[in-house]
């Protein structure tokens, strides 16, 4: 016999049989109630324990302030941070282009000024210049030298602006690194959630895949082109693909 304790003892069972044989229903029912009480008490205790556990884990889940923080503060904060990155990179691009656009006419001026004196200068070099032309050349060169002095200062200023516009890289790098950390934390929490509540059936995942799979939906810059077979990695690939299509 196993070590299990029966809900009803042998003595009580015998008493029950005797009472039933004697027709003492009330006394017999009392014995049955007495016995089932023990069994149901155990059941109640078990249900109680489970209830407490469920309550505790729900409580823990709600009390895990990290999750609440993630949802209420960190993720909106990350959105702001990423918006800041867009703003910073846009400002840098505009500052750089401002400087470049301001430099282009300076460079063009320089080039056209030099082109105007080259014919006289060539004559000088081949000793075929008249005195009058020589005088004019001297004035022109003097004029150009003074202009170039100012222009080169201006170019240096613009180049410096281009250089300084790159200061976003450090700042946006730090911001993006923090957002990456946050994404990692959210990932960890999601994995934890999945292990607690179980993962969705495979079929659902498969369905999702096929839904978002083969199509021409915009995806933005591809950052892992080398590891993917469905994307081109550079302009040469594009040209090859198009020419294979008869372009």
């Amino acid at each position: 016999m196993s070590s299990k304790i029966p809900y009803i003892s042998l003595e009580m069972a015998k008493d029950l049989v005797t009472l039933l044989e004697q027709g003492d229903i009330d006394a017999a029912n009392l014995i049955v109630e007495e016995c089932s009480k023990a069994a149901s008490e155990e059941l109640f205790a078990e249900v109680g324990k489970l209830t407490r556990q469920l309550h505790d884990s729900l409580q823990d889940f709600q009390l895990d302030s990290r999750i609440a923080n993630l949802a209420n503060e960190d993720i909106p904060d990350a959105q702001n941070r990423l918006a800041y990155v867009i703003e910073m990179t846009e400002n840098a691009a505009n500052k750089t282009m401002d400087a470049v656009e301001a430099s282009i006419p300076v460079a063009e001026n320089l080039s056209s000024n030099i082109k105007t004196v080259i014919p006289s200068w060539d004559k000088l070099m081949s000793r075929q210049i008249s005195l009058q032309e020589f005088k004019e050349l001297c004035y022109s060169v003097d004029d150009i030298l003074k202009k170039v002095d100012g222009d080169s200062d201006q170019l240096r200023v613009h180049l410096n602006e281009v250089l300084m516009a790159q200061d976003f890289q450090d700042l946006t790098g730090q911001v993006i690194r923090r957002v990456i950390d946050l994404v990692r934390e959210v990932e960890d929490n999601l994995i934890h959630l999945l292990t607690v509540f179980g993962s969705p059936p495979e079929t659902l995942i498969e369905e999702e895949k096929s839904k978002s799979g083969l199509n021409e939906k915009a995806e933005g810059p591809i950052i892992d082109a080398e590891e993917r077979a469905d994307v081109v990695s550079d302009q040469d690939d594009v040209d090859d693909l198009l020419s294979s299509l008869g372009f």
């Binding site: 083969l214 199509n215 021409e216 915009a218 995806e219 933005g220 810059p221 591809i222 082109a225 469905d230 994307v231 081109v232 990695s233 550079d234 302009q235 594009v238 693909l241 198009l242 299509l245 372009f247």
Partner: peptide
């Protein structure tokens, strides 16, 4: 465009695009 999936390039060709440049690109391209 930065879109570089082969299917997209094929779709653009079928839609009648005259040229397709992927970003980042150069002035020479």
């Amino acid at each position: 465009t930065a879109e570089a999936k082969k299917e997209q390039i094929i779709a653009a060709a079928q839609a009648g695009v005259n040229g397709y440049i992927v970003k980042p690109f150069t002035a020479a391209t």
